[in-house]
């Protein structure tokens, strides 16, 4: 009985500690963003690593996502012979739900995990302590550029990804479903609104904030050698995934 209670208490305490650490770290990151000048070189390097290097994986994922959504809605459309609705069905689902979620998951795998691994390695090999010994505050130097690189690049890559998903959907509808691509594009332009695109983009900003916060936190607070780095990456991607789906629900509920 006591062991059960102790177990619950220990978990609760460690959870509270984690949440508190994460909140403090995020607040400090925001505060330092406004009060200190960012390191320009580190900022550019982060933007390059986060944005340019994830470009291929986002494009591939988005192309396949668009194709999958067309295949899944294609069967329904074929049942009712409403080929004019194919673009709307696939486009609506992709822009609002599936596109941001899948790109977010990919981004969390590629960038979030990488960020956690990098910061965790720096922590384990005492590079962060070395920075501090050189009177360089690690938060504005390391965390602020990463945070804003992740948020801005998630937003921009979702834009690119949405375009690629629609392209993938168009190709699939032409070659697999034999629906003329002009009809598909007409359907997209006729039934989709700008609000559908913006809804997905708002989601992507929040996903980016979640991924940046979680991956910075788990990387910055890594402990326990090489094993600890692996564990930190594992927790980072798990928490990012959960927060992506929870945020998706909350945003979808309040902004239908």
């Amino acid at each position: 009985m006591t062991s059960v209670l102790a177990n619950i208490g220990r978990r609760w305490l460690s959870l509270s500690e984690g949440v508190g650490q994460m909140t403090l770290l995020t607040l400090t990151t925001w505060w330092k963003f406004w009060t200190t000048a960012p390191d320009r070189i580190e900022f550019m390097r982060s933007l390059y690593k986060v944005g340019v290097q994830s470009f291929p994986i986002v494009v591939v994922t988005a192309l396949l996502t668009g194709a999958i959504m067309v295949i899944q809605s294609g069967q329904l459309v074929a049942q009712y012979e409403a080929y004019g609705l194919l673009g709307w069905g696939a486009g609506y689902a992709t822009l609002r739900e599936v596109g941001p979620i899948l790109i977010g998951l990919m981004f969390s795998g590629r960038v979030g995990a990488n960020n956690t691994a990098e910061l965790g390695t720096m922590r384990i090999t005492e590079q962060i302590d070395a920075l501090r010994a050189l009177a360089i505050d690690p938060i504005p130097y390391l965390l602020v550029p990463r945070f804003f690189a992740i948020v801005s690049m998630m937003f921009l890559l979702t834009l690119v990804g949405n375009l690629m998903a629609l392209v993938g959907g168009t190709i699939t509808s032409q070659f697999l479903l034999q629906v003329d691509w002009r009809l598909f594009v007409w359907s997209l332009r006729e039934y989709l609104h700008l609000s559908d695109l913006f809804n997905g983009l708002i989601k992507s900003v929040f996903f980016g904030i979640a991924i940046a916060t979680v991956s910075n936190h788990f990387g910055y607070h890594t402990s326990g050698g090489a094993v600890g780095v692996g564990r930190a990456v594992n927790s980072s991607v798990v928490f990012s995934a959960v927060s992506i789906f929870v945020l998706d629900f909350v945003i979808g509920y309040f902004l239908p």
Binding site: A113, I124, A226, G230, V233
Partner: peptide, 25 residues
């Protein structure tokens, strides 16, 4: 060392997710 473990975990999640999306297609 720890850098390699981090790189391996990142590689695992990226490759697995890509494989899942591709197999799904």
């Amino acid at each position: 060392g720890s850098e390699g473990v981090g790189a391996a975990t990142t590689k695992a999640v990226v490759n697995c997710s890509l494989a899942v999306v591709f197999l799904d297609f």
